[in-house]
Simulated assay, not measured.
Amino acid sequence: MTTLYIDADACPVKAEAERVAVRMGVPMVLVCNGGLRLPTHPLVRLQIVAAGPDEADKWIADSCGPGDVVVTGDLPLADRCIKAGAAVLTHAGEVLNVANIGPRLATRDLMADIREANPFHQGGGAGFGKADRARFLQSLDRALTAARRVPRDLGEPGAQGPR
């Protein structure tokens, strides 16, 4: 069964993801270090992980696989989830996959080097608005629809094995 995993600590689209997951009948797991209120819908659960760097990322990467969808803005986590066979979306609805994750990681590393070399170089992107939320909702709907068609076990043609 398809599961939707949300890297929830800084996710601006938790409510939108929950609406789509509930409408489609897909279980959703909010993964964080704490500080979120308990979900009220039975399809949505809160997975609290130990405090510490990347604990939520480790849990998601170890839990996801083919047929699952992960929502994250963390590129190293996205890379691990893609390698595990999951579909990955950013909060703005961008699909991350084998074809684009390498260049995205390289750009991330380059920008980190630039910021380190020049502390006056300030990054920062545009604000997160209605268009971003709409794009996310459309992308999530498409991703979950496609993920539900992914074979889950060895008995199905094209399956990649049990998780």
Rank of each mutant, 00 (worst) to 15 (best):
P103F: 00
C32I: 05
E94T: 06
A50E: 09
L77C: 06
T145Y: 04
F120H: 15
V69N: 05
A10V: 03
L46N: 09
A112W: 00
E156Y: 06
E16D: 14
D62R: 15
V69A: 06
L105D: 03
Q47Y: 07
A61F: 02
G125L: 08
Q47R: 15
D113P: 09
V22W: 04
Q122A: 12
D57N: 07
L154H: 10
G123P: 11
V95S: 02
T145E: 08
R148P: 05
D54C: 09
K83C: 06
K83R: 14
R115F: 01
A8L: 02
F136H: 08
V70Q: 05
F128Q: 12
A51M: 13
F136L: 10
T2H: 07
D113V: 06
M28Y: 06
N100V: 00
Q138S: 14
C81H: 02
M28V: 00
R23N: 12
T107A: 09
V98D: 09
P103T: 00
G155A: 13
F120M: 12
G127Y: 06
H41M: 08
P42N: 05
T3D: 06
P42W: 04
L154N: 13
V13R: 12
N100S: 02
A147V: 04
C11K: 14
G129A: 13
G161W: 02
R115C: 00
D109C: 03
G85P: 10
D132E: 12
V13C: 09
L154E: 08
K83M: 03
M1E: 07
N97W: 00
K83Y: 03
G127A: 14
R19Q: 15
D74K: 09
L89A: 00
P76L: 00
A51D: 11
A131G: 13
V70G: 04
V88I: 05
D153F: 11
A147H: 03
R148W: 03
A131C: 11
C32W: 02
R23A: 15
R45Y: 01
A78E: 01
L30G: 06
A112F: 01
V26I: 07
L140V: 00
G158T: 10
P12C: 09
D153L: 13
A87F: 08
V70D: 03
N118Q: 11
G85F: 01
Q138R: 15
R23H: 13
N118S: 12
T72K: 12
P157D: 10
C81Q: 04
N118V: 04
R148E: 07
V44T: 02
P162S: 12
R23C: 07
S63Y: 05
M1K: 13
A106Q: 08
V49F: 05
M24Q: 14
A21K: 08
Q160I: 04
P103E: 00
P12F: 08
M24R: 15
L75K: 08
G25A: 05
V69E: 04
G67L: 11
E55S: 12
P162R: 15
G67F: 03
L38I: 11
R149P: 04
R108N: 01
A112K: 13
A99N: 07
M28H: 09
V29H: 12
S139I: 01
I114M: 11
C32H: 10
A92R: 15
E16W: 02
M111E: 04
